[in-house]
């Protein structure tokens, strides 16, 4: 039997959102780098910062899911 909580579903939904976000960031960064290879390092840095902001949202959801399952005090 698989036991879980509804908070897990919430974390999964947040992961979908973050996945779309990071995907589009990565895709656009790749486009930019292909168009202007000389700016690749700058684009990479900015991409990582933006990805970190998006990822943070998914991680907030994950932390809340943990709190929701009552396993982190």
């Amino acid at each position: 039997m698989i036991v879980g909580s509804i908070a897990g579903i919430g974390a999964g939904l947040a992961a979908i959102g973050a996945g779309i976000g990071i995907g589009s960031i990565g895709g656009k960064a790749l486009e930019g780098m292909a168009r202007q290879p000389e700016a690749a390092s700058q684009i990479q840095t900015t991409m990582l910062i933006a990805a970190a902001f998006v990822e943070a949202v998914a991680l907030f959801a994950e932390v809340i899911a943990f709190l929701g399952t009552g396993q982190v005090n």
């Binding site: 970190a52 990822e55 943070a56 991680l59 907030f60 994950e62 932390v63």
Partner: peptide, 13 residues
Amino acid sequence: IALMIRLFANITA
């Protein structure tokens, strides 16, 4: 706070 949670959650995950 975002800085704190980001590092914590990434490593824990």
